[in-house]
Amino acid sequence: MLLPTSPSADARAGVADVLPATLAVIPFALLLGSQAAQKGLSALDMLAMSSIVFAGGSQFLAVGLWSDPAPWATLALAAFLINLRHVLMGASLAHKLGRFTALQRFAGAHLMTDETWALAERRALDRPLTPAYWFASGAVLFVSWQVFTVLGTILGGLVAEPERYGIDFAFPAVFIALALGFWTGWRTAPVMAASALTAVAVHALVPGAWSVIAGAFAGLAAAVLTAPAEAIEPPAGAQPEPRP
């Protein structure tokens, strides 16, 4: 269905659609800030990271790996690897940005998160995706992320013994749910098993983010090795895909 739209109506729809995801993000933003405070990061550090990086998963990972002085190359590589999924998300979204100027595309890219991307893909199913929708939903999430990660850092030391309440497990739990969001049937099982076992083995031997890198590559190898033949080679008689 193609409904007539106006920028202000699209912006209101973007804000309304992103509100549940924003509420869901607040506890993690507070948790991230409090964990950053325990690593010695200041509220200004947190504001810089939340606005310049603006990617929850990699910020959690970075805070987990943070030491003094900051291992910047490791942190950048870990951020790159954990955010590589953005390449696939962006490639899919690129076909729905017909109403965006080049500047809007590349400025808007900074606001792409799992949540805003999923909302935009959903929106694009039944009406054109507009800059008003994208920037409104992205801005709500962006500003909330700044406010609540910084607030978490300021309130940081207030929860003593977070392990006692299992609060430290919120981070693995979020990632279990995110990882299983990519479950596409039993074919995903060998990917996750290879990744998990390799990551645990490497984590026991080498400090830092290497377990993430080794586990990720083991998972990719498992995916390629267990892929059905037709996923690797086009079936006989199939035409090659035209390149635009």
Partner: peptide
């Protein structure tokens, strides 16, 4: 396979 492979490797040691 990249997203589940990376996300699993991130959390496996903690889980």
């Amino acid at each position: 396979a990249l997203p589940p492979a990376v996300l699993t490797a991130v959390i496996a040691p903690a889980v």
